[in-house]
């Protein structure tokens, strides 16, 4: 059992821009694309340092995906960014056919997703991106939980053969993972051991899950917390081990419960180790305008809600 140690606050997207610029020095083959959101996605940090290797495609995401594919065919290593709603949503078929069908080495680091987009509202809050991206054959899906893990995820993505989607979140967020914590694609990190229930969280919800586990501990409930930073390939072994140990699992994601982490975990459980599962996330509804914190509270994606869910769940009869 390890206590949550929050070491500071930094937006994951800010860490993304910094990591890109750093990798640009190591990797002359790295090229970065954006679609007129370079300041929001923070790719501008790379663009200022390496203007020759930075391409702003304007507000034309479909073209950007194809251009990224062409750059990859040329032997370069492209990383393309825009908001998730446009990259994974609007340009879905370009991602599928131009990038994934030929299994090209393109990293899509798409930002501004889930409720934490905030005030821009439901039209811009992508809550289907994990679902869409993980359904494409050969696509890897990563969701870093903090600024530290973001840097590792980017490095892993560009070294990984084939397309990778990284879900990069917008708001300032606590960072708490260790600098030397391992990051292996497809290998979940258990952040806290527990025997009564397992909270499987991804992205910004990992911190909330750890906080919820601390609250549950005060009630005498022992909750394990798994940081599922890779949604695809999902770490089935970790899920099965947790199911066998605790029997009860809750998934937590700032995403629709349909097709995302909750679905991925449910698929593993249903096929390999039936266990009791609750899915916390957007319950088949769109978001709305509000501050990120107000929205997470409203839709039940904060530690007290997660803890309350766990208590109820454990109190229910199977």
């Amino acid at each position: 059992m390890s206590a949550l140690k929050i070491r500071g606050t930094k937006a994951i997207r800010v860490a993304y821009g910094e990591a890109l610029a750093e990798l640009g020095g190591e990797r002359p083959d790295l090229v970065v694309l954006d679609a007129d959101l370079a300041h929001a996605t923070t790719t501008c940090v790379f663009g200022e340092k390496y203007p020759q290797r930075f391409f702003n495609l304007g507000i034309a995401e479909q073209n950007m995906m194809g251009v990224a594919a062409g750059l990859a065919i040329s032997g370069l290593t492209p990383v393309a960014s825009t908001f998730s709603i446009f990259g994974a949503g609007r340009a879905f078929e370009q991602v599928r056919n131009s990038i994934c069908y030929p299994h090209l080495n393109v990293t899509l680091a798409l930002t501004h997703n889930g409720l934490t987009v905030g005030e821009d509202g439901g039209s811009h809050q992508s809550i289907e991106d994990i679902s869409l991206m993980r359904s494409i054959p050969g696509m890897t899906v990563l969701v870093p939980c903090d600024a530290i893990e973001m840097r590792k995820a980017l490095r892993a993505a560009i070294d990984h053969p084939g397309p990778v989607y990284i879900r990069v979140t917008r708001p300032p967020a606590p960072y708490f993972t260790e600098d030397d914590a391992p990051f292996t694609i497809g290998k979940a990190n258990t952040l806290r051991e527990g025997s009564d229930i397992t909270l499987i969280a991804t992205g910004l919800m990992v911190c909330q899950a750890l906080l919820a586990a601390e609250q549950l501990e005060k009630d005498g409930i022992s909750a394990a917390v798994i940081n599922m930073h890779t949604i695809k390939p999902i770490d089935g072994e970790a899920i099965i081990a947790a199911a066998k140990k605790t029997g009860h699992l809750i998934t937590v994601e700032d995403h629709s419960i349909i097709g995302g982490l909750g679905s991925a975990v449910a698929e593993v459980l249903a096929e390999s180790c039936p266990a009791r599962l609750r899915r916390i996330g957007l319950q088949d509804c769109f978001g709305q305008s509000g501050t990120p914190d107000a929205l997470l509270e409203h839709y039940g994606l904060t530690a007290p809600h997660i803890a309350e869910n766990a208590r109820k769940f454990l109190g229910e009869k199977a």
Binding site: Q52, G70, L71
Partner: peptide, 14 residues
Amino acid sequence: CSIAVGMALGARLK
């Protein structure tokens, strides 16, 4: 054509 644009950019960059 988008792929071709990317290939042309790539060739020029290299």
